[in-house]
Simulated assay, not measured.
Amino acid sequence: MSKYDATFLTTREALKTIFPEASNKDIKKYDKQLDKVKDFEPVLIISPNHNWINQHTLQNYQMVMNAFAIDSLQQNNRRDGNSLLIFHFSTMTELYTVRQNVRTLHPNAYFNPVAQPKQEPIGAAWIFYKVGASKCDFGEDDNFFIC
């Protein structure tokens, strides 16, 4: 075991941090989805902001998440396994290009600090990497949903 292994959490531990209210059944489903990701390929995980959903409707939330799922992909391809939460990318460039494209299409999903009335972001963005069969590195990108 390398000295760095101790600093990485299991995928399940990371998911419980990202989705503290999720059921064990949901955590298991998300864990299974992340099991298909290759080491060091970026994954965007979005934990929904229920205030945004209440203000803009679940249908609008799903529309924005679908944009993350299909932007820049060929027809009938998705990067989320229909989860509307976990989005797999091949590179960080692809991830942030999709972010910019979605921001252009759905600006109300992003927090604008000068907007009045005050806006809510659509969720919290977490960047996740697998670093072995069951270990991962992850962190919240506090600026992901800011204009």
Rank of each mutant, 00 (worst) to 15 (best):
L15Y: 04
F19G: 01
F19W: 03
E21W: 01
A22I: 02
S23P: 07
N24G: 11
D26W: 07
I27C: 11
K28Q: 14
K28W: 00
K28F: 08
L34S: 12
K36N: 14
K36R: 15
V37K: 15
D39W: 04
F40W: 11
F40M: 13
F40H: 09
E41V: 04
E41W: 00
E41N: 11
E41L: 08
P42N: 07
P42T: 02
V43E: 05
L44F: 01
L44V: 00
I45P: 01
I45R: 13
I46F: 03
S47T: 01
S47L: 00
P48N: 06
P48Q: 08
N49A: 05
H50A: 05
H50K: 15
N51A: 10
Q55F: 08
Q55M: 07
Q55W: 04
Q55R: 06
T57V: 00
T57D: 10
T57I: 03
Q59M: 10
N60A: 12
Y61R: 02
Q62G: 04
M63P: 00
V64G: 01
V64N: 04
V64T: 06
A67Q: 10
A67L: 11
I70C: 10
D71I: 05
D71P: 01
S72F: 09
L73F: 03
L73E: 12
Q74R: 04
Q75A: 10
Q75W: 11
N76K: 09
N77F: 14
N77H: 12
R78N: 05
R79M: 10
G81N: 15
G81W: 07
L84W: 03
L85W: 03
F87Y: 15
H88N: 13
